[in-house]
Design a protein around this nucleic acid. Structure first.
Lengths: 197, 197
DNA sequence: CAGCCATATTAACGCCGTTAACTAAAGTTT
DNA sequence: AAACTTTAGTTAACGGCGTTAATATGGCTG
């Protein structure tokens, strides 16, 4: 029994190592440089063992994507408990979104298929993304209780504003320093949540 | 001499055929499915001839990207002559942006490295994009003559708003019909240009 | 006709994702 | 202890990729 447990523990460590290695390579060299063989090399295995843990490269990427949305969800839930004022809450969530994109760009890229990241699994069918959607819609609803339709629309606008600023900031980061972009992001998102009520 | 001319003409036709074929495959199967060999097959040549026209796959993609920005620039210049009122002008430019992204999605994808399109040539160093930037900054300036700094910031915000709505609309197109997204886009962009003055 | 250049091809290199075949060690059964 | 099975891991292979080198073919010029 103990043996089985130990095996499972190392098995999960290996699995986690694969995911982490993929992200490491992506961060250093970009997602186009991430290959099964390179991952296997990095964890001192031959390539086929990766398929003992993931059915394909695509499900591996999908897992990382879901990890990203799950991480955001947990952050959001943490903030929900922290801030009572929905305006403040939505603003803080916006800031977390920025922080996440800046601190874990390779995650943000695979979540939205940016910059060579190419996960064919449909984003919109990710279970985690749906949970995130629900949370945010609920927050906006407590803010301004309108029809589900209106809420969805406001969420769409909030998401697009945040996502647009984040991706464009990354695109122009060599012309416009990230600090300047962050300032604009903060002001824009503050203006947005202010304009909601 | 005539022979030379004919050769040059067919040479340019072949070149254009390569670019068009790449876009065709990308539209049908996505950019991840675009390969040099497939392009060559489609125009009844062997793979290496592509390298007589483009030094690498990357410069081929870069060319398509620049074509995209050039197309937009021409459209913008056309609108500049058409509309005197800068508010109306900027709004119409926003609409062209949407139209372009919807009608030529494979172009929009390679321009911003979306959905498997992966052109390593830095976007911000594209000559065409700089021209587009200039045009738009000039338009905004005639709208509200402020410091170059302020103009650049407003342009950044306009661009981010448009780009965010466009990419998110594409992402959610199976949950939210494109017509609904377009309506939101129009209203948001109208609000944006209204809010400028 | 011989030689030359342009044009296009085939062959090859090293990479990719993925699967099949194989090996060696560990555990289990008799 | 010997024989069998399971596990964990390997190497080898397939077809496809971007790219380059070597090779063939056909038309032009001397």
């Amino acid at each position: 029994m103990e043996v089985v447990e130990r095996k499972q523990r190392t098995r999960e460590q290996t699995r986690a190592g694969i995911l982490q290695t993929a992200k490491d390579i992506a961060r250093r060299e970009g997602w186009q440089a991430v290959s099964i063989r390179k991952i296997a090399d990095a964890i001192d295995y031959s390539a086929p063992v990766v398929y003992d843990y993931f059915d394909s490269k695509d499900v591996l990427l999908d897992e990382i994507r879901n990890d990203g949305f799950r991480f955001l969800r947990h952050e959001y839930e943490r903030l929900v408990k922290l801030y009572r004022d929905p305006e403040k809450l939505l603003y803080e969530i916006s800031l977390i979104q920025w922080q996440f994109a800046v601190q874990q760009p390779e995650m943000y890229q695979v979540m939205y298929n940016l910059n060579g990241a190419n996960c064919l699994a449909p984003i919109e069918e990710s279970g985690e993304i749906k949970l995130v959607n629900e949370i945010l819609c609920r927050i906006i609803f407590t803010f301004i209780p309108k029809s589900a339709e209106s809420i969805r629309r406001l969420y769409f606008e909030w998401w697009a504003t945040s996502h647009g600023l984040i991706t464009l900031s990354a695109l122009l980061r060599h012309q416009q320093p990230l600090e300047a972009s962050e300032q604009i992001y903060r002001e824009t998102m503050r203006r947005f949540v202010r304009g909601l009520k």
